[in-house]
């Protein structure tokens, strides 16, 4: 028998964790993986009702819809439940001319919010990339301690990290360990 792993439920129930960075799990939003030929940028932008970002790491927002460019032909779209239905309908409309893949991944990932002046330092315990190069309003798909994550920087001191559900206990545990370490201050 293996040792008891912290479960997702443990994470959700976790309280009393201290550290300079405020960590919390965000309510589950609607999330879609969009893959399409970037040559159809205009049509895709039209369906999304925003200017589709084509540089990896760039983001665009409009009316509760947020798109992050993850790869040359890959985006992640965040919205709420109603927004998702609208996006799905708009994309179904253009499928004939603009073939693409739009997959609901709302349940695949769970988002962690990190808030505080030490958030970047906290992330540096597991992220090998230069986090200072992700400016507010941008994002990156990267690793946190060997786990693939999508990192969105919403402000100088505010990040969202999206993790596949089953990896959350590991990532959450590490973040809390490191947050405690920041509290100690050495």
């Amino acid at each position: 028998m293996m040792t008891n792993a912290a479960t997702l439920q443990d994470c959700l129930a976790a309280t009393g964790l201290s550290g300079p960075v405020e960590l919390r799990l965000l309510p589950e939003p609607a999330r879609m993986a969009l893959r399409a030929d970037p040559a159809h940028g205009n049509a895709l932008s039209g369906a999304l009702r925003l200017e589709l970002p084509t540089k990896i790491g760039d983001r665009a927002n409009n009316d509760g819809l947020e798109v992050l460019c993850l790869g040359p032909d890959e985006w992640v779209v965040h919205t709420d439940g109603e927004g998702m239905a609208a996006v799905q309908a708009a994309f179904a409309e253009i499928y004939g001319e603009v073939p693409h893949s739009l997959v609901d991944i709302s349940d695949r990932d769970i988002a962690i919010e990190l808030r505080g002046a030490a958030a970047e330092t906290l992330l540096s315990t597991g992220c090998p990339i230069d986090l200072s190069r992700i400016r507010p309003g941008h994002g990156k798909r990267t690793l946190f301690d060997s786990v693939q994550v999508v990192l969105l920087r919403d402000g100088e001191d505010l990040f969202r990290m999206e993790v596949w559900r089953s990896f959350l206990p590991h990532v959450w545990g590490l973040l809390n360990t490191a947050n405690r370490e920041l509290e100690v201050g050495l």
Binding site: M1, T3, N4, L8, Q9, S166, H170, L174
Partner: peptide, 28 residues
């Protein structure tokens, strides 16, 4: 940080808490 519970990633399913509560013996 890789020791004890954090030695390696352990992935669990949404149903894992029920299995644990109901005395499952686990395998990796």
């Amino acid at each position: 940080y890789h020791r004890g519970e954090r030695f390696e990633v352990i992935r669990t399913t949404p149903i894992d808490p029920w299995a644990e509560e109901n005395g499952a013996v686990f395998e990796p």
